[in-house]
Design a protein around this nucleic acid. Structure first.
Length: 793
RNA sequence: GGUCACAUAGCUCAGCGGUAGAGCACUACGUUGACAUCGUAGUGGUCGUAGGUUCGAUCCCUGCUGUGACCACCA
């Protein structure tokens, strides 16, 4: 057993220490061009294809993003699946791409321009968009480079950008079709309005924050008898100028006789009616609620029911407007300041009865962190309740399955209560809504200018008389088309499909965190079912979110963000990937610290050292298991364990139990292969067993390749001496013909050794002898048995 | 307010209707030719709480307490 120097036959001697940085980049670039889907099968894998396909849509990261741990988790899982199926003869597609991230991107470039001393408002929209494309050119590839460092084997050749020419076409086609089918409409409605960005945002882009506030009880005097009043509680006294009624519950005996009478709004002095509406809750506040349809979602509904006027007193910047200013100083004041001023005035009058401290949720925009104001504006909506019907059905009938299935409830709950989706945004960056307005405000929606001109002509207008819509679409509108726009839609062949769609649609599995079930998963379900009449994916695997060691959400402001790039630099991408797999237990958030990754690195070191041992002993790695003699109990046993590992891994991948997968890999290598097999082999020292050792180890490297592609490829190349060796398309070695009937015997031997050791320690000589005799009679007085006793002694 | 998770060793977490598991930490021993990025051995738990089902419950059921997440409301 001497150390073998480098030779072509036995590969290159491994370095003493496992330093992932030394080879990960090299390994990746060797395999990079083999990831492509549509032609890889013919080029690299023709003979092994099993005729089945496996496809995953990569959730496109924001173009502004950098790799964070959440990405590392989700991409690792996806890459494990892709690599596993690719190895097993499937024709795989892992569709990558980048999202244009409407609001986020605009804010990033806005900030950069200001830093460079340019006022974004002085630029025309076209110039601003050009600046954004400049930014994308310079930094847009960052996130993709980082995905590659992690080892992602995506089908890079097929990569898409949601604002590229093709996707833009798809968006226009989808919009126009939905409009023609009456599923997109324009409506005056109360939307969530970000006063900083001056745009509408969707319900999902709001974060509620609990805040201490006050409830002011105001006296609304009865018009017919000014000595009497009712109390109305409000947390937003600045909106009293927009009050159009006070509502009471029709069942509320206290106020029954007042219904239909009028009360006077404090300060404003205007008389408004008392109406009966179920919205008023007898047990809340005073039981009377002021109705301000233009500035409150519930009141808006009440206003519509009763045909009330909608008065706006807050403008798009959050400033007070009023046609009839009782207090002129209010005009133009930011609403928070206005509230303060009005409260002061009220306090100095008898109109404020009392106030009350309360804690209430205040909506903030998730991007700008400013207060969101309900705003009465014209917006474009998708009729989500209609589209949700099919999307709901597809999950109910099991066409698409959630895993773990508890997420189905979340999905159902949302889909059943879905509201119209506001898709228009008053920003610059995004897909411009393909609509035009005639001078008398008729709407023309068209696929092209020519088409618009034609439609205008039919209405008796010329193109030059039309004004084009300036609103752009919510980013998630284009993301919703991701499943099929990436596969060539709408450039369809004669049969209404494309080669990619026929091959890879519906995709096999969608891997995602639960935080975007609503944003993305639900929208893709709706859009795909509408445009392709089929679900976008068959399985949805929902993984956990990553938190810091203390279980807190990682965020920049908390300063507890762990950078995956730093972890990869220090411990290697394989260690990070293995950690992600190991920790991805379903239904529980992942608490991750640096130590977890270090432990994984240490395990990989164990694999490394096992490889070095084999190499030092001139173990042959070029024979496959079917070519080696498995003819003694030790060989038989390790092959049985390997066989078990193979089937466990198959099962683990099928059930998305990457934690089990990682554990099983560890148990095999450490407990079986190193602790017993290698130790015992030291005393056997025959060529057949050594050949088994090599073949088993190579199969082990193949099995771990999807999880740890770098180290497994590197070791395989160096051990075999074949620098071109690539486990990417290496499929399973069948162990069917190999018997493993004495697996239990050897397990028993391992157990007896343990008992022997305990007895030895307790100095129980009788027991020591008895165990020794048991072993000798069952397993014979072989060199291996002797050797193992020697170790234990 | 509604929904859903979770509670197991000092820490992070697996697990399971029948003797309680891993890693980290800790203790002791070990630089013995693969491995100190390590090995061997060991300490450590009435499995949140109260009931119920069962021959038997950490596991199944119910209540409670605590923690977290999501949705809704917020006069």
């Amino acid at each position: 057993m001497t150390l073998q120097n480098s030779s072509a036959e036995h590969g290159t001697t491994l370095e003493k220490t496992y330093i992932p940085k030394a080879f990960e980049g090299e390994v990746y670039s060797q395999t990079l061009d083999k990831f492509s889907a549509l032609d890889h099968c013919t080029k690299y894998n023709k003979n092994k294809l099993n005729g089945k396909t496996y496809s995953i849509l990569m959730p496109p990261p924001n173009v502004t993003g950098t790799l964070h741990l959440g990405h590392a988790l989700t991409y690792t899982i996806q890459d494990i699946l892709i690599r596993y199926y690719r190895q097993n003869g499937y024709d795989v597609l892992w569709q990558p791409g980048v999202d244009h991230a409407g609001i986020a991107m605009q804010m990033v470039v806005d900030r950069k321009l200001r830093e460079d001393g340019i006022d974004p408002h002085t630029l025309s929209n076209e110039d601003f968009i050009a600046k954004i494309f400049d930014w994308k050119e310079e930094f847009g590839g960052r996130i993709v480079e980082q995905q590659k460092l992690l080892g992602c084997s995506a089908t890079w050749q097929q990569s898409r950008f949601t604002m590229d020419e093709h996707c833009s076409k798809a968006v226009i086609e989808a919009f126009v079709k939905l409009y023609e089918d009456g599923l997109i409409y324009k409506d005056k409605a109360l939307v969530n309005w970000d006063t900083k960005l001056e745009t509408a945002i969707s319900d999902l882009e709001i974060v509620n924050k609990e805040e201490k506030g006050k409830l002011w009880y105001l006296r609304y005097k009865l018009e017919e008898d000014l000595s009497r009043h009712i109390l109305v509680a409000t947390s937003r006294p600045e909106t009293i100028f927009a009050d159009v009624a006070v509502a009471v519950n029709p069942e509320d005996d206290r106020y029954k006789d007042l219904i239909g009478k009028k009360v006077i709004i404090p300060i404003a002095g205007k008389a408004i009616p008392i109406i009966a509406d179920e919205h008023a809750d007898k047990d809340k506040g005073s039981g009377c609620v002021k109705i301000t349809p233009a500035h409150d979602h519930n009141d808006f509904a009440v206003g519509k029911r009763h045909g009330l006027e909608m008065i706006r007193v807050i403008d798009k910047k959050g400033h007070m407007i009023s046609d009839d200013p009782v207090i002129p100083e209010l005009r133009g004041l930011y609403l928070v300041k206005a509230r303060k001023m009005i409260v002061e005035i009220l306090q100095n009058s008898e109109l404020l009865d009392h106030d009350e401290d309360v804690v209430h949720n205040v909506p903030y925009g998730d991007r700008t962190n400013t207060v969101i104001e309900p705003m009465l504006t014209d917006q474009w909506f998708v009729d989500a309740p209609k589209l949700a019907v099919e999307a709901l059905k597809a999950v109910k009938d099991g066409t698409t399955k959630f895993s773990p299935d508890k997420w189905e409830n979340t999905y159902f709950d949302w889909m059943e209560n879905i509201r119209p989706w506001c898709i228009s945004r008053q920003i610059i960056w995004g897909h411009r809504i393909p609509a035009y307005y005639t001078p008398d405000n008729k709407i023309i929606v068209a696929r092209s200018e020519e088409d618009a001109a034609k439609q205008a002509g039919e209405l008796g207008y010329t193109m030059s008389q039309l004004t084009k819509e300036t609103d752009v679409l919510d980013t998630w509108f284009s993301s919703g088309l991701w499943a099929f726009e990436t596969m060539g839609w709408p450039n369809l062949d004669g049969d209404g499909s494309t080669e990619e769609l026929r091959k890879y649609y519906p995709t096999s599995t969608l891997v995602t965190g639960f935080d975007i079930i609503f944003f993305w998963v639900a929208r893709m379900m709706m859009m795909s079912l509408y445009f392709r009449k089929d679900v976008p994916f068959k399985d949805i695997y929902v993984h956990a979110l990553i938190r810091d060691e203390k279980g807190q959400k990682m965020s920049k402001s908390k300063g507890n963000v762990i950078d995956p790039l730093g972890l990869m630099e220090e411990f290697g991408a394989d260690a990070l990937r293995y950690t992600m797999a190991f920790m991805s237990v379903p239904g529980r958030d992942i608490k991750l610290g640096k130590d977890n990754v270090k432990i994984s690195r240490n395990f990989i070191t164990k694999i490394w050292n096992a490889a070095r041992f084999l190499q030092m002993n001139n173990v042959c790695f070029d024979k496959s298991i079917s070519d080696v003699k498995v003819d003694n109990s030790l060989s038989n046993w390790i092959v049985a364990k390997l066989k078990k590992l193979q089937s466990e891994v198959d099962e683990n991948v099928k059930e998305y139990r990457f934690d089990f997968l990682a554990r099983n890999i560890q148990y095999f290598l450490r407990d079986h292969y190193c602790d017993f097999f290698i130790e015992a082999m030291k005393f056997v020292n025959d060529e057949d067993t050594k050949a088994v050792a090599g073949a088993v180890f190579m199969e082990f490297l193949r099995i771990i390749n999807p999880v740890m592609p770098f180290v497994s490829t590197y070791l395989a190349q160096n051990l075999s001496g074949n620098q071109a060796k690539d486990l990417l398309f290496e499929s399973k070695n069948s162990l069917d013909g190999i018997t493993a009937e004495n697996e239990e015997d050897t397990d028993r031997f391992v157990e007896l050794l343990h008992e022997y050791r305990c007895a030895n320690k307790e100095d129980d000589q009788d027991k020591v002898e008895s165990i020794k005799n048991q072993v000798l009679s069952a397993f014979g007085d072989t060199a291996m048995v002797k050797g193992m006793f020697k170790i234990v002694d």
